[in-house]
Design a binder for these strands. Structure first.
Lengths: 208, 208, 208, 208
DNA sequence: CATGAATGAGTCTTCATTCAT
DNA sequence: CATGAATGAAGACTCATTCAT
């Protein structure tokens, strides 16, 4: 089942530091803007040693994206058709926001890739992502049809959650410049909860 | 008052053509990813000729950002403390969305700059932008205090409008992959209007 | 008819010196063994300037081979079915030998390419070269059938002429070590003439 | 007398395996074109292990050339001044051809070395080889003087035998492209025998 | 105003070789 | 005896920029 020889401790460690260094650099500079020198510095390894573990700059980038995509859709996948509608949507939005808070570099990596036209992950967007979104949009639609949440466009609802939650990671610099250097995520959590509860709650007794 | 010699028609035209080409390229590839060759191609000029009109690659980029920033805050500036609160906020959001629809390259250019850590425009973020946001947040707060819109965090309200509206330009590739190639902005306009009306309208007779 | 813009004098000159420098280096070191630095030195240009005129190392090599192949088959093409058989064959061998004498670098370039497995020119060998050899072998065969030259294998006859004549260019170092530094080609010319006259002349009054 | 410690069976086997792998690679790619990775692959050993048995890439190459030169001159050495002249020369040419047939990699290795200017074996060419050729040329000359073979240049005679016989190994790719994939050596043997009998036989009753 | 020519400073990648175990 | 790990030096190629006309 495992086609590769077992990884030694050194291999595992070095691949990890390289990926972490790569994430640091790629998430700020994008693929083209990043240099192997920067990544090697960030990883604390020499440049040829980098290429001993990964065959090329592309391979590092590809490994990072693969690793990212493996978990990127998890929050949406967890949206449960059998749960309470408002609770489920709010929980999804908060999970997504927590992901941005805990993995801002990954979020920015994703953003740079999308901004560049998604050369590496276009297939995933048009395939698995689209399918998952359509599936969950049906769930949302069924809830709306049953009057359990207010009717609105389910696709745009999902997209709006992405936009809002990722923004706090991706536009971090701007957010901090405007909101100050405190924890923007706590306030964001409140605001986003408030926002989607207002939109979705069919019973307008809104304040908690 | 005009320190530069008067610009000939050719000069004006070529500067414009270069800036447009630069916008094409920078907005997709980012600063480092863009090359003068690509910009020259996009502008239909030779590379040395580019550098006749702008002293360097940086200068083209800086000129684009400057041009962008000159109008970037206009929609927010236009938020009128004397207008009807809900109407004003919704109008602001829709103006911002229209800007994304009509100037997606500019939006992406701004996004790449922010993602890279805003090396060129940090001062503007921490200065004029922050000041304007604080000023308008006070307006929003006064409306909330007067019960004319529902109470929520005015800073996050503004940030959320940025996030939502810019997302449709910046993450265009992803949005199209998920929503299809139709006009996402029309649906976004409806959704965003609905979303903020739900949040803000103090009288819960929400449906139109 | 001419799809390229007309070449300036500088372009023509620089392309020529690059090709000559490339010939110097490739013919001794082979493709892999040659470096752009060596070629740039031989051409008297900077390395980036080399790549201003040719897009890559491969392109220089390919241009040299193309130039070579354009004339490589001329001596054999000139073998005239209507001429005197012995005269024609001897003249062909002597033309080929003269080519080796006058263009030893080209001969060695061809040799290194063949020794490496002919990665670039295999198609030419299996196509035009094979066809031409078959055509001329038929001519030789008809002469043999008519008793105008002695019967032997016409294909091997042609191959042997290649082997003998090219050897004096390709194995120049060895030939000089054994024969001394004098003009080996003069002696070769006599010997080769003698050799093929002996083989082919149907009338055994052999001495001249 | 034996300065080296006795070689274990593993040592002997691995040195042999490395030399064979090196021969595979060097004979196709030349010295510069060959990489230790390729040789290690061909030998089925790891790269550092290669360098446990040979101190450097150069050393492998040098060992191959040394091994080659040890037997390279044997066919010519065996030319017997006391034998029948025509028989001796034909036998020499056929031995040399057989060597090319049976050891084509060695022949190509020699060719790449000569084409590169014989940096490693120039001394051998100008010394032992030259001496041996001169010695055998005297034998040939004496036969000519005695009228036992026809008079021609004995040095060129020897060189021509090298050229013809080695060509079938070194230019294998070209020969196969022109003659087809059959056994070119059988035909070559006939042709070469015919060629030199025609040249040398003093009694013109030539056909067998 | 425009462009062909040229280059120094990178940037990715290869590779022979060394080190440590 | 064997190999995983590491690297300095070099090599092909890119690119912003300068020069000359």
């Amino acid at each position: 089942m495992n086609e590769h020889p077992p990884m030694t401790r050194i291999q595992a460690r070095n691949r990890a530091v390289i990926l972490s260094g790569g994430l640091d650099v790629f998430s700020i500079a994008g693929f083209r803007g990043a240099t192997l020198d920067q990544i090697a510095d960030a990883a604390g390894l020499s440049k040829p040693n980098l290429l001993y573990y990964f065959p090329s700059k592309d391979a590092i980038y590809a490994a990072l994206l693969e690793q990212l995509l493996a978990t990127w859709l998890d929050p949406l996948r967890a949206l449960d058709a059998d749960g309470d509608p408002v609770t489920e949507v709010l929980a999804y939005a908060r999970r997504k926001l927590a992901l941005s808070r805990d993995f801002p570099r990954e979020s920015r990596l994703f953003a740079t890739e999308i901004l560049a036209g998604a050369p590496q992950i276009h297939a995933m967007l048009a395939g698995p992502l689209r399918d998952l979104v359509n599936e969950k949009a049906l769930v949302l639609q069924s809830w709306m049809d049953a009057g359990r949440i207010r009717a609105t466009d389910p696709h745009h609802l999902i997209v709006s959650i992405w936009a809002l939650t990722q923004h706090y990671a991706d536009f971090d610099v701007q957010v901090r410049a405007v909101l100050g250097d405190g924890d923007a995520f706590a306030g964001a959590d409140h605001f986003i909860t408030d926002l989607y509860r207002s939109l979705l709650d069919p019973a307008p007794a809104r304040r908690l």
